[in-house]
């Protein structure tokens, strides 16, 4: 395989908030709390976890839409935290984002053509005629038609709007695409269409993806490796095959087992997690998962586990694997 195109080291985002009855006690939300991973050129890293685990914050920090509290983001061998404004603009062109809610992220007053053209204007690409030609190409590329350029976002279905979001992200020929839950709001049948499209585009343009989802079933098809996040931390990171066939972390197991299986004859012993993800302002002591973990031990509420490399190369953070 190739060398890492993108490397994230000990990335953190802490939000100070005013807690307590009179807003006097100050607390810290550890939205992302020391995340590290690498992504190779042309591969897809899936990032999975329940809502509130810090997935979007991680993605947005890589785009520097959110300033990290701490950590390094190394893109093409340079720490983007140290780039000049001009260099950062160039990097922004190389890293594009696709969002969950294609409606909220597309300006309803602009035509689809304008929406897709806009990033090219921002980055001074081509003249008007060239850009319009590219818009038409892009529309065809994502499975829409060139005449759609004149229409408005509300005239499209959810799946089609997501295709528009993808066309816009591709407009400036990026190297990396961060897709933040791009199919979570879509019907199962439409999810598959969009996933296939993303995969085809990846092959065609040698794109590198960070694919964020809250559901392991969606990520499986597209990811080479998957990182599972819980309360701001990566708890398991592994080759896709290994993760799905033999999940190690109890949280990964629970996430997998929560996916409904489309076969009424299979009655799996479902692991149903109790409660919700705790608040990142008050993470439980020890292993942050211990109050929901079905196999928690005494040590789990006292000592925090750290990521360990197992024999198959995967990383797991759990006292069971010490």
């Amino acid at each position: 395989m190739s060398e890492p195109l993108l490397q994230v080291e000990n990335l953190k985002k802490y939000y100070p908030i005013n807690g307590g009855k009179f807003g006097s006690v100050s607390e810290t939300v550890r939205a992302v709390d020391g995340v590290s991973f690498t992504v190779n050129e042309g591969e897809t890293l899936g990032i999975v976890g329940e809502s509130g685990c810090g997935k979007s914050t991680t993605g947005r920090m890589i785009m520097r839409l959110i300033e990290p509290t701490e950590g390094k983001i190394i893109f093409q061998n340079r720490n983007i935290m140290e780039l000049t404004k001009r260099e950062m603009r160039k990097a922004r062109k190389d890293i594009q984002m696709i969002f969950q809610d294609p409606f909220a992220s597309l300006n309803p007053r602009h035509t689809v053509g304008h929406i897709i053209e806009e990033p090219m204007i921002v980055h001074h690409m081509g003249d008007k005629r060239q850009r319009q030609k590219r818009v038409e190409e892009l529309l065809e590329l994502v499975g829409l038609s060139s005449y759609h350029a004149k229409r408005y976002p509300h005239q499209f279905s959810g799946g089609q709007r997501q295709r528009i979001g993808i066309a816009r992200a591709l407009a400036v020929r990026p190297k990396v695409i961060i897709a933040d839950e791009p199919v979570s709001a879509l019907d199962v049948s439409v999810q598959s269409q969009v996933l296939n499209l993303l995969k085809d585009l990846q092959k065609k343009f040698n794109l590198t993806f960070i694919f964020i989802a809250h559901d392991l079933s969606v990520v499986r098809h597209i990811s080479d490796r998957v990182g599972v996040m819980y309360l701001g931390k990566v708890v398991e990171l592994s080759e896709s095959e290994n993760l799905y066939n033999d999940p190690k972390h109890p949280y990964t197991k629970a996430l997998l087992s929560a996916v409904p299986i489309p076969d009424p004859d299979i009655k799996t012993e479902r692991i149903i997690l109790e409660g919700d993800v705790p608040s990142p302002a008050h993470p439980p002591a020890g292993c942050a998962f211990h109050d929901r973990c079905p196999v928690a031990m005494d040590i789990c509420s006292i000592e925090q586990p750290h990521l360990k490399t197992l024999d198959d190369g995967r990383l797991v953070s759990c006292h069971l694997y010490n």
């Binding site: 329940e50 809502s51 809250h214 559901d215 392991l216 079933s217 629970a254 996430l255 087992s257 929560a258 996916v259 409904p260 479902r270 149903i272 997690l273 109790e274 919700d276």
Partner: peptide, 11 residues
């Protein structure tokens, strides 16, 4: 809802 919470509600 998240799949984990979906599993709780369906249950």
């Amino acid at each position: 809802l998240d799949v984990t919470i979906q599993a709780q509600i369906l249950d």
